[in-house]
Amino acid sequence: MISDITIGQYYGGSSAVHRLDPRVKIILTTLFIVIIFLCKNFLSLAAMFVLTAASILISRVPFRMFFKSLKPILPIILLTAVLNIFYIKKGTVLWSFWIVTITTGGLATAFFMAVRIICLIMCSSLLTYTTTPTDLTDAIERLLSPLKVLHIQVHTLAMMMTLALRFIPTLIEEIERITNAQKARGADFESGGFLQRVKAMLPVLIPLFVSAFRRAYELSFAMTCRCYHGGEGRTRMKQMRVHAADFVALALFAVVMAGVIVLNHFFGKMI
């Protein structure tokens, strides 16, 4: 069922990872992504893998959740691995047939890339699992607030993100409802060629847009009634404060980053 998709996919808890300042979490995740692309050998990659695994363990978010977020990416990971295996010809030849040659270098690269992507996905999933969508948008708003100097409407952007997150489940339910209603009138979404199928979607899309506009109109009324007048003079109930734990996490990441650079430098490039 489409309504099974959880957007923002927050997984509640009160672990140390959950309690980190969301701004710090965003910075750490960004740092992580940068570092993982700096990794040049298995030692540094192993360090990153251990860091990922440790963070996951601390968060107490079950592994099956991470497997769930990996599942849609799995074909891409496999495809890159296969391409690497066949295209990279380095090191000892293990097997060769016609134009296909498999080398140790190819296998190693394939493995390296796969682990890198897996770490990347796990780490960004960890961010969304341990941070509510509201906290995320709030943190983004606060992190980007220096851009106000450039007259960029940071608050408006964050508000739009919040509203999008708020209304995605509502609209998904609506799609399901309209689809059922049109099916009950004999609409056929399953047969015919591509163009026919696109045309068959119109009885769903038109009412969906009409309803989305109506919702937007009513919502803007409701917001005005609740004294919304943009970001000016607005306070926030939830204050974000950096605690000792946040500094520890930042320090830890700094150490790992330094470690990766050292490992890269002293143990040579693998790729």
Binding site: E174, N180, A181, A184, R185, G186, P207, S211
Partner: peptide
């Protein structure tokens, strides 16, 4: 099954939102 839907016509709640 589509033939069944013509023989058992179901009109859902707030059907006006299916007009297009």
């Amino acid at each position: 099954i589509r033939q069944v839907r013509f023989r058992v016509g179901v009109c859902f709640q707030y059907p006006e939102y299916q007009l297009f």
